[in-house]
Design a protein around this nucleic acid. Structure first.
Lengths: 149, 149
DNA sequence: ATATTTGCAAAGAGTTTGCATCATA
DNA sequence: TATGATGCAAACTCTTTGCAAATAT
């Protein structure tokens, strides 16, 4: 990824705030930055803990900003069976998740066949698909990380 | 479905309670019955409201019993994007969900291609899939029921 | 009889809301 | 400086827990 791309999420947020006449607060940019420094799925609590180490922030501000970032499709929310996780989503292609029931690790995979299924459903069910989630729950068998046998 | 099959969920619960030496309380059977009278997806609150009209019950008891029924695979829990719903699952074949973002209706569909995807993932990712969820969020276009255009 | 389950109420997690203060435009 | 955003605390929802009373074995 080049410098230009790295800046894109910030530019997108910036343009959006300008367009909507919303304020460009340092909190909003900071939250976006911290999310884009992360490489894995995260929950609100861990994001809060990360930021609060550096400066004062409130969870309400994080929740507010998260809503904006979801609307901008800069992050994506996932409701897994027992917890809600988020991930950055700028220029990230469609992918699905494997969730290890034993070690809670979240892996990703892509599969073009899902698009075929979406196409079938849209034509047979009179339903327009806006987004989808495909999650496989099971056992990752990673000998290094999967603790609980 | 014949009488024998209609009784199966109760028999399954009964055997399980006997095996485990757990008590056969009328609450446990009542909760199972009410769930099996329902034909759609439900949340804890609506199940509670249904039962409380007939007799005293506490939500704690419902949550406890739900855990047993999930373990017995008599019901299945679904974490949709903004709410948790349950459905009866005895002798119900694998299916997936369409969730209307406008009217909250939940539709079901089956697609054999999902099993193919599971097979691919298990062989390519060293992951054993225990269960999966495939949800499509969008617009159901049901002119009768989809209120919010 | 006795130990588990229930019902209740309180405690917890996660998220939202109201309001005074702060800070961006 | 004027309005929108923040931070805080309280409220809210959903779920879990602790304990006394009820009940199945």
């Amino acid at each position: 990824m080049n410098n230009k791309n790295e800046l894109e999420p910030t530019k997108i947020l910036n343009s959006y705030l300008e367009e909507k006449g919303l304020r460009k607060t340092q909190e909003r940019y900071l939250i976006l930055d911290e999310i884009y420094k992360k490489n894995d799925h995260f929950d609100i609590e861990s994001l809060y803990q990360l930021i609060i180490k550096k400066q004062k922030i409130s969870k309400a501000t994080i929740y507010n900003t998260i809503d904006i970032l979801i609307e901008l499709k800069l992050i994506k929310k996932h409701s897994f069976l027992n917890k809600t996780l988020y991930e950055k989503s700028f220029q990230k292609k469609q992918h699905n998740h494997l969730i290890c029931n034993d070690c809670d690790k979240v892996l990703e995979f892509c599969d073009p066949r899902i698009q075929n299924i979406i196409n079938s459903i849209e034509s047979s069910m009179n339903f327009v698909v806006a987004e989808h989630s495909l999650n496989f729950y099971g056992k990752c068998n990673d000998p290094k990380k999967c603790k609980k046998i």
